[in-house]
Amino acid sequence: MKTTITVNGEARELDVDPRTTLLDALRETLGLTGTKKGCDHGQCGACTVLVNGVRINSCLSLAVMHDGDAVTTIEGVGTVGKLSAIQQAFLTEDAFQCGYCTPGQICSALGMLQEVADNWPSQETGDLTAQIRLTDDELRERMSGNICRCSAYPQIVAAIKSVAGELA
């Protein structure tokens, strides 16, 4: 089935079986293997990408559902030669061991920081009518959809906090 998705700023025409998830289309059809397949059931967050600026699990979406959408993957966040601030922060804070969850953590963090900027509440938000402050508890709650099996959580929190001011 024909579908067109703008991936990292470039319109890409695909012809896929309707069963193809957005994750598999990115990895297998387009060769963008930065986005990782962990559980493939929306439980681990390794496949997190931004669709029209909003973070989702790409494993729980069909490619054909995204005709006309703009998708940002880790390849669109930065490159080896030109790291984004958040990628540099993950290096500086040593926010991973094996690195498998890292692309999902970074895409999720970017989406999360925008949600905070837009004043979206979480279950850690006490006063629902006040401006949200990104405390450690808020940050951890908002990142609970991304699992790190190496348990680099303290460093991940530190990395995200170090860029939160400039990005949020």
Binding site: R55, N57, G111, N119, L128, S144
Partner: peptide
């Protein structure tokens, strides 16, 4: 729905229930 200002001020129980479910990624979809 959880972020809607009217829901938060007039139906806070609905916002609280929604943000107690799933993850940020799931609630976005």
């Amino acid at each position: 729905v959880a972020a809607d200002a009217r829901v938060r001020s007039r139906y806070p129980v609905l916002t609280q229930a929604i943000v107690a479910g799933g993850s940020g990624q799931l609630r976005n979809k």
